[in-house]
Simulated assay, not measured.
Amino acid sequence: MGRRKIEIAEVKDPNNKQVTFSKRRSGLFKKAFELSVLCGVELAIVMFSPGKRPHSFGHPSVNIVADKFLWKKPTSNVVRANYVRENDAPNEVDVMDRLSQQLSGVEVHINEEHEKATELDKREKEQEASQAQNKELLNSPVLQRMVEDYVDAIEVSECMLLLAKEPVVGISNRTITKRRRRRN
């Protein structure tokens, strides 16, 4: 079926709106992270969900980017003091950038391991179900009767083989061999 072009308009249904927000939010955060890594920019995204919950993403962090943005129009001396401290130590920004990248890598690894664990749990449940079916079959009276029938058939076959090797009472081996020789 593929992707369809959708009309850009507000979603009316609140449930669909929340689902759309959740899906688009992760994509937007991913694109923002890629932009920050590829271009070396500092950015911050702050948004509120339809349920009025705040969500944010920042590289290297939302606070650092907000402080730099607010530095152009400071509202208090506290913001200025924080910004001055950050500029005095540019290594902190580099460290924060490196730590942010490491955190993203760890999050990706955690998600991969979570998917593996989910798959292993699924396989384990399937194996337990298979073992339960095997136990039911072993305790089945129909299967037990079939096994008894096969054992009886094997015993009868063994007896028939033994009888074929040993002569029947009253008939000697010589007469059987003489008759066979005469026919040849």
Rank of each mutant, 00 (worst) to 15 (best):
R145A: 15
R25M: 06
D149Q: 09
E113Q: 15
F57Q: 02
V142N: 04
E10Q: 15
N15A: 15
D97K: 11
V84I: 02
V147R: 13
K52M: 12
T177Q: 13
F48P: 05
V151W: 11
S104F: 10
I6N: 02
V169A: 14
M47H: 04
S36G: 00
I8D: 12
N134C: 14
S22W: 03
F29W: 06
L143D: 05
V62Y: 04
N77I: 14
Q133R: 10
K17C: 05
R180V: 06
R80V: 04
S172Q: 06
I154D: 02
V46P: 01
K17Y: 05
E155G: 02
N63W: 01
D13S: 04
N173Q: 15
A89S: 14
E112C: 01
K116I: 07
Q101M: 01
D13E: 01
K17D: 10
L162D: 14
R181P: 10
A117R: 03
T118N: 01
R80M: 12
V106R: 13
I6H: 03
N16Q: 01
V95A: 15
R3E: 14
A9C: 06
K52A: 04
A66Q: 01
Q127I: 12
Q133H: 12
G40M: 05
L120Y: 09
H114I: 02
P90V: 07
M160V: 12
K135F: 13
C39E: 14
Q102N: 12
A9W: 11
Q133A: 15
I176G: 03
S100T: 08
V11F: 03
I171Q: 03
F29D: 10
H114T: 07
P54I: 03
E155I: 09
D13F: 07
E42D: 09
E42H: 10
Q18F: 03
N82G: 00
L143P: 10
K17V: 00
L163D: 12
S76T: 08
T118P: 01
R24D: 10
S22H: 06
K122Q: 13
N15I: 13
M47L: 13
E112L: 01
P54H: 00
A153W: 06
R80Q: 12
R24W: 02
M146K: 15
V37F: 04
S130T: 15
D97V: 11
S22T: 09
E158F: 08
A81R: 05
Q144V: 07
A132F: 08
R85T: 10
V78G: 14
E86H: 00
Q131W: 02
E148G: 00
W71L: 10
S61D: 04
K73D: 13
N139W: 00
T175R: 00
H109C: 14
F29E: 07
H55S: 09
E92C: 03
V19P: 02
K73Y: 13
I8S: 11
V37N: 02
E107R: 02
R24C: 01
I6P: 03
G27F: 04
F29G: 01
S49V: 09
A44C: 06
P141Y: 08
C39G: 13
R85M: 03
P167W: 11
R183C: 01
T177H: 11
F21Q: 04
E158C: 12
S76P: 09
E155V: 07
Q144E: 06
S130G: 14
E86L: 14
K165H: 07
F21S: 01
V65N: 12
S26P: 02
W71Q: 12
V79F: 08
S130L: 15
L143Q: 00
L99P: 04
K122L: 08
